[in-house]
Amino acid sequence: MSETSNANSFSIDGQRIPFTPGQTILQAALAAGVYIPHLCHHPELKPHGSCKLCTVIVNGRNGSACTQMAMPGIEVENNSPTLNDRRRVLLQMLFVEGNHFCPGCEKSGNCQLQALAYDLEMLAPHFRHAYPVRPIDTTHPDVWLDLNRCIMCELCVRASRDIDGKNVFALAGRGVDSHIVVNSPSGRLGDSALSIDDAAVHVCPVGAIMVKRVGYAVPIGERQFDEQPISRQVDYLATRHIPIVPVAATEER
C-alpha cells in the first residue's frame, strides 16, 4: 500500500475505502458502495448520531459512522455478527417501544425501519411490547402525524429547521418520556406553519408523518424496498433527495 493511497483511504472489514477530507465514515462508505445500516442519517441533512444503528468499531472503539470523520488508515469493523446482533437488538427495542403495525401502514414497503428489520432478519420482537399510549394529530388539512410510529430520529426536526426554516418540530421530554412536539400556540399541527411542500413532511423514514389521503396508491411490488433489500440499495441511500410532493399531485390521489 502506497503512502498516498493510505493518506486518502481507510478500511472497512478489510476493504479499502477512499475518502475526501470532511467526509464521515458513513458518507465515504456509501460513496464507495459499502452499506452501513442507518436510520437517522439523510444525505441532505446534518449528521445526528441518535439512532446508533450505524455504530461501527473504529480501531477497537465503538463509534457512530454517521458522526465520526473518516481518517487515513483507520480500521473499521462493520458487517460482523457481533455488530449486526447489536443492531438487531436496537431494532427490536424500537419496535416494542412504539406501536408499529406494518399490516395496515401505508408506509409498508417504503419504511426504513421495516426494511432494516427484514434485512437484519429480525424474526421476533424479543422484548415485551410496551404498547405506549401516544397521540395522533389529525388537525392539519394535508398532513397526518401519528406518534405511535415515531422513532425519534429527528429527521423532521432537522428538515424543518435547516431546509424549511420553520422549526415546526422539536424533541421534548427525557428518556422514555421523549416525544416529538409541535411548535404552534395550541401545540397542534393544524395551527403550525407546516405546509405540505415542506421537506419535514416528506423526510420521515417511518409512517409517523404521512401525507393525508394517500393510501396504497403505489402497489405492492413497486415500493422502494420491495425489489431489493435495503442493504443492496447503497446508491439510493447515498444520493436520495427528500421527495417534495407538490400539493396538486396529492390531491389527485
Partner: peptide, 14 residues
C-alpha cells in the same frame, strides 16, 4: 376508530 380512512380497506382485511 381513530385511524385514517385510507388505511381501513387494508387494515380490515386482516
Amino acid at each position: 376508530e381513530g385511524r385514517p380512512y385510507w388505511e381501513v380497506p387494508v387494515t380490515v382485511q386482516r
